[in-house]
């Protein structure tokens, strides 16, 4: 690929993701999630994805609900205060909905260290966290039947080691995360792949370096030249990025600092729909398949709703949206 011109149309994103891939989804719960690209994976009918993130939000619950994933490995999957991740929950609370789905529980700190280890190319990293909890309990290992069998799953969850260098503390060795693909949504990206992120990079830099293939969608694609001044604001070097996609509102319905806020109407409708397999399928047909493209999806959301969630230029979030779903007013 041309090192200076990495721009691709959004329709091509699914070519970079194979069934069964370990896919890192950037952002944090309901903030800066790569939704436009997740919708593409759903439309392309991807299967058996192994989802990793730190932590997961509605995009992860949606990919699970649409049957694209067979595994998740993270510390949290949810919609924060909006409500519960019903698709994810149903896989475990209703055995007939499980369909071989597996989940491995971790923590924010150890997920951060694991993806950092992935970026460093080291196989594991020691930590002082996790001791004393059931997260390492071998009886409660969500991937126990996959270890040593599935090549995307570490052969063991952890190992204890007595520190051989200093005081001899018993520390925990945890495996690195090695994503096949990393999907990130950012405010700005250069044609060469340079990524500018404001309001929190989360683990996106580490994941971009750790993954074999990294694709970044951005509110705006700009010439590389535009990112050469105030370079301190750039979060990820172009060398760590394989392709860039221009996708305004590409994280909708999650928030993007300085651009737009969470879309509470989306969460209200999605939460209602995700409560059963049937209504979830209907929602996916209506919002993902029938619009046919991300452009069609945004048209269905409507310009007045997008205007409502647009961020205040000084505050960098919306000061007017209501976040109480039970007190939402309709917008047309």
């Amino acid at each position: 690929m041309d090192r200076r011109q990495k721009r691709i149309p959004i329709e091509r994103v699914s070519e970079f993701v194979q069934d069964g891939d370990c896919v890192w989804l950037g952002g944090w719960t309901v903030v800066r999630k790569p939704f436009a690209m997740a919708y593409e994976l759903i439309r392309a009918g991807k299967k058996n994805l192994h989802l990793v993130n730190n932590p997961g939000g509605p995009e992860t619950d949606l990919l699970i609900g649409c049957g694209c994933a067979s595994k998740s490995e993270t510390n949290y999957i949810g919609h924060e205060l909006f409500g519960h991740p019903y698709n994810f929950r149903r896989r475990f609370e209703q055995p007939e909905s499980n369909k071989g789905f597996r989940h491995d529980d971790w923590t924010v700190a150890t997920g951060s260290l694991r993806i950092m280890a992935g970026a460093m190319g080291i196989p594991f990293i020691p930590t002082r966290f996790l001791r004393g909890s059931d997260i390492l309990n071998p009886e409660m290992d969500g991937f126990r039947d996959l270890r040593g069998v599935d090549p995307k799953v570490p052969k063991r969850k952890f190992m204890m080691l007595k520190d051989p260098f200093w005081e001899g503390e018993e520390v925990v060795l945890i495996p690195s995360i090695r994503p096949d693909v990393c999907l990130i949504h950012a405010q700005e990206a250069g044609e060469d792949g340079t990524v500018r992120i404001t309001g929190g990079v989360f683990l996106d830099y580490y994941a971009a370096v750790a993954a074999k293939v990294t694709i970044v969608s951005a509110e705006k694609i700009v010439p590389k030249r535009a990112l050469e001044t105030t370079r301190e604001e750039n979060a990820i070097p172009g060398e760590a990025v394989d392709a860039v996609v221009e996708a305004p509102f590409g994280a909708h319905p999650t928030a993007v600092h300085g651009c737009y806020d969470n879309d509470p109407w989306w969460f209200r409708d999605y939460l209602k729909a995700s409560k059963s397999e049937e209504t979830m399928q209907k929602w996916a047909d209506e919002w993902i398949f029938e619009p046919g493209s991300f452009k069609g999806y945004l048209e269905k959301v409507g310009s007045s709703r997008l205007a409502k969630i647009t961020a205040d230029p000084k505050l960098l979030y919306s000061a007017t949206i209501k976040r109480r779903l039970d007190k939402l007013e309709e917008v047309n």
Binding site: N75, R89, A109
Partner: peptide
Amino acid sequence: PYHRPEKRFEGSGGASD
């Protein structure tokens, strides 16, 4: 029970750490 829970929550995020 962990593998067949009555209620499965979002996960503990960073609380354990």
